[in-house]
Design a protein around this nucleic acid. Sequence first.
DNA 1: TTGAAAGCGCTAACAT
DNA 2: ATGTTAGCGCTTTCAA
Lengths: 379, 379
Amino acid sequence: MTEDPRPAGSPTLEDVARAAGVSRATVSRVVNGVRNVDPVIQESVRQAVATTGYTPNRAARSLVTRRTDAIALVVSGAGDDPSPEAEAGGPYRGGPAGAGGGARHADEPDGGAGSSFTAQVFADPFFGRVVTGIVNYLRPRGMYPVLMFAETSRARDEVVSYLRQGSADGALVVSTHADDPLPGLITDAGLPAVLYARPSRPTRISYVDLAHQDGARLAAEHLLARGCRRIATITGPLDVPAGQDRLAGFRDTMARAGQPYVPLAEGRFTQESGEAAMARLLAEHPDLDGVFAANDLMAVGACHVLREHGRRVPEDVAVIGFDDSSAAVACRPPLTTVRQPVEEMTAEMARLLLDRLAGPDRAVTSVIFEPSLVVRGSA
Amino acid sequence: MTEDPRPAGSPTLEDVARAAGVSRATVSRVVNGVRNVDPVIQESVRQAVATTGYTPNRAARSLVTRRTDAIALVVSGAGDDPSPEAEAGGPYRGGPAGAGGGARHADEPDGGAGSSFTAQVFADPFFGRVVTGIVNYLRPRGMYPVLMFAETSRARDEVVSYLRQGSADGALVVSTHADDPLPGLITDAGLPAVLYARPSRPTRISYVDLAHQDGARLAAEHLLARGCRRIATITGPLDVPAGQDRLAGFRDTMARAGQPYVPLAEGRFTQESGEAAMARLLAEHPDLDGVFAANDLMAVGACHVLREHGRRVPEDVAVIGFDDSSAAVACRPPLTTVRQPVEEMTAEMARLLLDRLAGPDRAVTSVIFEPSLVVRGSA
DNA sequence: TTGAAAGCGCTAACAT
DNA sequence: ATGTTAGCGCTTTCAA
């Protein structure tokens, strides 16, 4: 028997140190790439790391560095809890399929009302671009986003609590509704965060946004230049800045062009609401020849309804969307749309957050991006 | 001056203990809901927690419990690194938009080729359902998914490393390609994980899957019952089990019905590939009257091409999809499709993983779900 | 039922 | 340039 009591768990700094015949501190320096380590020792430490199969323990490291290298990506709604102790309230949606060999424990609160929010969020392909931008920025830096949803006051508390526990170093917040209380809760707690889009109430918090009005202007000008004379618009929800600004910008340009009264129908940024809005518009203005929808999903819905009403797009009615989400190229005809550089914007959010983490004294910043027109088939 | 050196950072157990006049151990017990604590003391501790605004530090807790309550959700591809030190290789996609007031530091490796994978992943609305199921299961348990992508060997190493560091307790893996090396790497490292879909190479790892053949049978039977006589299929990639099994099940049923030779075109589960496949099929079999596409995205593409070729759906050609993703209801006509209970399946993945974490001796399990037919307008 | 004390694995002064 | 040492904040035996 050798007197080699192999360490129980995974190897620690101590083990590596012993193997390399140096102190823990030296190993730590090598592992963390700190200068002032003799190249020779450096090499032998690396050897020891390799032979022991050492991996630093993140919890231990976090405990002292006070950093986790995790960032919360929170998609936030403005809802209040529907009922006081709503955990997974709402109608239980038992799918017709059921589980074949599995789905034991029918007591799980899954698939309940809570699902609608996350399902709805991902239904907009816009969100995929949000994630892409963030992941692309974070990943080369060894950081990863933790996905959280904050659509109820309870969920919001959990997000704040999560951050306060130091489970993530900060938050990237994308609100889907107006009057979202989350930004306020986060800043009140003194936690670092960056928003997508200007908060509806002024808050001391950094954000990234789009020059919505400029985008709407682009859309209006394109429709006008195309020769459309009877133009209507399907707006986003008018209680959120993006909805307001896109309408304002559109109206403004139309007014300047001599068309101060733009027929309008309000949507909720969903395809379905776009269909309904288009139907209303068509009923009141059967002769319209141009439509600006405040996002692509609604534009797609509008196209469907127009076609069902015998209108050809773009020959009879030109349609222009907003976002340049994947829905824009997936439909026929492909959508002419106002592109929002989402990936760049969300990467910038991540950058602002990391800046702030590096130097907490950094001032609050906002960065506004310019939209651009992408001409495809629909207008 | 009072002699009250207010603690610097956020309050710790120690602070609460002092405030409540008990020991750290007792506070810990109360906070963690351990029995055997005098109700009176329990109450005073709660008071102290409230007044101090205490929040447990997750890193410290993790260090001793060896749990992080984080789960890695990894979307995995099978690619190798295109070039040895490819970090963000490939053509640099500088958007036409550019950043308005922001986008300083043009040196960021963002928006490069790496983005295509994440963008592509989220382009399939199927993925939103994956996330929904997982989040719905995890959230009530105070756990959150960390989003990771593993499309290159380097990224795979990072995932393994992440798990080995104990940054997450386990992994939920969704592969998008065949011959994905990740499951093997993870099991080799002895890390807990559960897969979506059977791995192409047999691996000792739990997974959740769908009875793809049954689903394809449902589709075939529906088309047949509808009276279609000249039926073709757009398959998924034939090197992945889901693609193979859906084709096998479809062919099998068709053969039984006396149609052993089914015209076929292979797609890649993208709308674009579905369009191309449909065009090929139509060129060779202009008289076809029914199409089974192995997923909804391809079915949508097929509908577009059919319409462009003057075929009405479903009057001239019936089209049936697979998945029941949001794309199925977003198009016109809405897609008749084979529903995969994705949310239930991914919730089950999470359940299997947590089971395994609770008792590492648990055997490897696989759970197969049954698909169902959802009849809408396209067939 | 409660407290004392050890220690999880690591980093960062500080000393050498 | 390297080692020693003192914690980071928590859980968890072990005693009392």
